[in-house]
Every structure is written in structure tokens, then in C-alpha cells.
Computed example of a mutant assay.
Amino acid sequence: MRGVAALNAPLIGTPDSRAMLETPALVLDAAAFEANTAQLAALSGAHGMGLRPHAKTHKCATIAKRQLALGANGIACAKPGELLALFEAGIRPLMLTAPIASARKIARLADAAARGAELTVVVDRVDLVEAFASAARAAGARIDVLIDCDTGLGRTGVVTADEAVALARAVAAEDSLRYVGVQAYAGLVQHVHAHVDRRAANDAANARLRAILDGLEAAGLAASIVSGGGTGSHLLDFEAGLLTEVQAGSYIFMDEGYQPVDFHGTETAVFATALFVDVTVVAHSAAGEAITDAGSKSLAIDGPPPRVFRDGVEIGRIEWAGDEFGRVKTAAGHEAPAPGTRLACTVPHCDPTANLHDFIHIVRDGRLVEIWAIEGRGLSD
């Protein structure tokens, strides 16, 4: 270990050790994390649909193993670097959810497949089919392939059934590849706040997907895997039954970006906030505001500002005061905490926040119980 994790490791098992952590420290509440993972696993099982959690959220082999132990189909990854780090850490059923354009990265993926990775990739064009086929053949491997479909996000993927059929035929013609279905990630749906509006957006995306699936089936290329969805749309996807598996990621941690989302139309929280960055007040500004030791190097800033807790009581929000510093904007009735005070901050966006840390400190009932490595941290290649 290194950094604050090395300083904090001797505290493992010590009562009330969370309050003693050197900071900034990425902290995971074990009970909330376990409740979140168990809840979505149970929901997917109750609806007879698979779950392929997305590791872009955590990039951590220990978390991936726990998700697999709860019955996940496999682990989704956004980038080859993340995927290969998890493979080297012992994760085998892995899916790369984004198309790539690098012969060397493709060769590394094919080598991992030859060494035991149960690898699935997505393609959005014929030259990528050919590149994966050539690399797999050279490595003596066979790779499963999904056709990447754009159902409204406007990022990657084919739009029409004819395009999907042409790509599926190209994959099926390669002996080193195996056509297994489609991916359709409705990213534009995930953060729509109101349940009724999110359902309408998801229905529109599903209508585009259904047309593609119908075209593939008519061509004798029915998709056995239909992968997509996410934390924001998970219940809608379970109810619609069009996907065969959901690629939810943020549900394990939760963040401020998802706080306003009414997941189940009940206007009550479905998943608990499990991820925090614990910080220390290091100074007071001339205006008397508490300044902390964590800025944009510790918390991703592409989301609503973090809520701040002192001894479990919410006292305000954090504003950015630089790369290394945060400014506590205390709510009415709360005084600025004194230098040396430790605070817990929610995270604006969990995925990139996890990517800023090498280790997660696991706490239970205020006690540090474990420290887990984030093997894929920083591997955004």
C-alpha cells in the first residue's frame, strides 16, 4: 500500500477508527454497499433477468468478485485497461462495452482471451470485426461479439436493423468470433429525474431497439444476449423484459448525480449512499469558512456539490477551493468546524471519483475493517 492507505492500514480492526483516518480517504460503508448489491441482485432474479454490473464505477476486483458471487453474468468494463487489470486480478467473465480503434489494444485483449478471459466485445463497424477476428485467430482464441446499437444516445453504435444485420453476418462469417447478440445502452435515460418521464424516454429507446431485434430475427440472427440499461433504468428494464441483462454500475455506491432520480416511482430512496470521501478541516479562511484537505484531486467535480456530514449530521455542502482544497458552506444553525475536524463528504459522481484513488477504506459501524485496492484506477486507456 501507499499514501493514506499505508498510514491507515494499522488502524484496521480498531474501534472508532474511521474517526482516526488520515485523509483524504475514499470510504465505503460496508453495510450500505452490501444492501445495495443484494437488493439489485434480488430484483434481477425476481424478474428473471441477468445482471452484468459495470466496473467503470469501481474498477475493483474485490467488488467484482462479490458481484459475481451474487449471481452476476459477468463484469462490464468501459476501457481495455480496466478490463485487463481485472483479468490479471482473477476476474474471468469480462465484457468491453465500447468500440476501440487500436491494433495493439485489440491484440492485448485477444491474448487475454487466449489466457482464459471469457471475453465479450462490441463492434460498430466492419473493419473492427475484421481486426478482432484477425487478432483472435493469431492468438488462438475465440471472442464473443455483440453488435453495438445506438438507441438515442448519439455516441456509438448502428442505428438501423439493416446495419445490425450486416455486422452480425460479418461476425458470423469469422471462425475466431462468435456472434451472440447486441448491446444497447440508453445512457440518455439514466438521470431523468421523474419516473414517468424516465419511463417515456426508456420506452422510446426500447422502440428503436425492438426494430433492430426484429430485423435480426427475421434475418435468422436472433440475439441471445441483449445487454444494456443501467442504474437509472433498472426497474424499467426489468419490467419491459426486452433486455436479457442490465449493466448497472452506480447502484453500489450512489452519488449526488443520482440523488434526485425517483428510481421506482415511490419518491423514496431505493439505494443507500455508500461511498464517501472523508476529509479534514485544515484551516479557516479570512471569512471564517472551514477549508478542507480535499479538492478536485480527491472528488470528481462533474456533478452536484457534495453534502458534508460531521458525526453523522449533515452540516452543509462543499464548494471547490482549488485542486487540493474544499470550502465548507455550512447550513443555517451550524458553525464552521474547527481545524482538525474530520468530515464525511458524499461524492458528485462516483465513477471518476473512484478513479482518483488507489484504495477504498471499508468501514463497518465506525470501524475500519479492510482496505481494498482499486486495480483499474487510472487505467483509462
Results as ranks from 00 to 15, higher is better:
279 V>R: 10
322 G>C: 06
60 C>L: 03
61 A>I: 01
186 A>E: 15
343 L>W: 12
342 R>K: 15
226 V>E: 00
99 P>N: 05
53 P>R: 04
30 A>F: 07
250 S>E: 15
35 A>W: 06
321 A>Y: 14
44 S>L: 07
227 S>A: 13
44 S>G: 14
326 G>N: 05
173 A>D: 15
233 S>R: 04
318 I>D: 02
36 N>I: 10
299 L>Y: 01
97 T>I: 14
87 F>D: 11
87 F>Y: 13
107 A>I: 01
145 V>Y: 08
71 G>W: 06
250 S>Q: 06
92 R>W: 01
81 G>F: 08
79 K>V: 09
98 A>H: 14
314 E>Q: 15
207 A>H: 12
364 R>A: 13
18 R>I: 07
21 L>R: 08
173 A>Y: 11
108 R>L: 12
326 G>F: 03
241 G>M: 11
258 Y>T: 12
80 P>K: 08
325 F>C: 00
139 A>W: 05
23 T>I: 07
70 L>A: 13
338 A>Y: 01
150 D>C: 02
290 A>Q: 09
293 D>K: 05
5 A>V: 10
105 K>M: 13
20 M>N: 01
112 A>L: 03
57 T>Y: 03
305 P>F: 09
317 R>S: 04
304 P>D: 06
30 A>P: 00
73 N>V: 03
158 V>A: 05
308 V>N: 01
153 L>V: 13
71 G>T: 03
208 R>N: 12
237 D>M: 11
160 T>I: 03
165 V>D: 09
267 E>W: 02
138 A>T: 13
274 A>C: 08
121 V>I: 15
122 V>H: 09
119 L>N: 10
160 T>S: 15
136 A>W: 10
76 A>Q: 01
354 A>N: 13
230 G>K: 03
297 K>S: 08
9 A>P: 01
250 S>I: 07
246 V>T: 12
58 H>Y: 13
21 L>T: 11
181 G>I: 09
253 F>T: 13
232 G>R: 11
349 H>V: 10
163 E>A: 07
34 E>T: 12
7 L>G: 10
100 I>W: 03
129 V>G: 06
345 C>R: 04
19 A>G: 14
272 A>Y: 02
251 Y>A: 07
88 E>A: 15
24 P>I: 02
